[in-house]
Nucleic acid binder design. Sequence first.
DNA 1: CTGAGATCCTGGGGGC
DNA 2: TGCCCCCAGGATCTCA
Length: 271
Amino acid sequence: MPELPEVETVKRGLARSVLGKRIEEVNIFDPSLIKKPGDRTFVRGLLKKRIVQVGRRGKYLLIYLDSHRVWVVHLRMTGRMLFSSKGRPKQERAIRAILMLSGGTHLWFWDTRRFGEWYLVRRPEDVPLISKMGPEPLGIGRDEFAIKVKEKKRQIKALLLDQEFLGGIGNIYACEVLYRTGLHPKRRASRISISNIKRLRDNIQAVLKEAIRAGGSSVRNYRRSDGSEGWFALKLAVYGRAGSPCPRCGATIKRTEISGRGTFYCPGCQR
DNA sequence: CTGAGATCCTGGGGGC
DNA sequence: TGCCCCCAGGATCTCA
């Protein structure tokens, strides 16, 4: 579900709505949501704490508390962090937890498939994947990126999806970025020319920034924290468009599979 | 090191 | 309407 631009959008929404508020009430309906440190300790760790900062690392949301602890949220496939100042949401199956904040704002976690994860830790790096995570795609330089790509023999799309390689790219943006660069998703990383690797890095940054500006892509389940949709889905050139004509060359967009994920590309433009 | 496949879950859509 | 199969913005684990 949400990738870097979606998580960034949620982060910005929370920064506007819940920053500085105190957590007055915590209701966990599905204890399997809490990965660390166990749900009772988790609830105690949140109660009466103030939210002092909101951040993001890869696809993880980082909510800093005034207790020197970080509440870390991963939305996985269908998670939504939603807020409302107009009262408690109607109870439904997909809501795994509800918080009440000072001033009467409610914050809740909607997550149909229940893959989402919450942690309460001292530092973000205490979450296993965060400690191993590769650099932020928006921060990496051309040369550093080129060196990293050149030393891998994997299919380029599998590499982009690997969070230990770069943190934050997922299935939609991996497809879009390769399309924009004219690279076939199965190309071996080490065999791509330096100049194309640099173009790839530039396109990664351009696409992610455009998507952030659009509030992310609501293809299916993703929503911003105020419940609205991001509209970048309208600009997707290949993702989910198998059978449609390529906007650039008119060839029919194809679907294949790479590391078990649906992969969309244009056989005309991507070599 | 790489890749394939199964697994954790629920729900929507297409075909019959 | 019902049923069955496929598919889904993620990540981990085992096995070859």
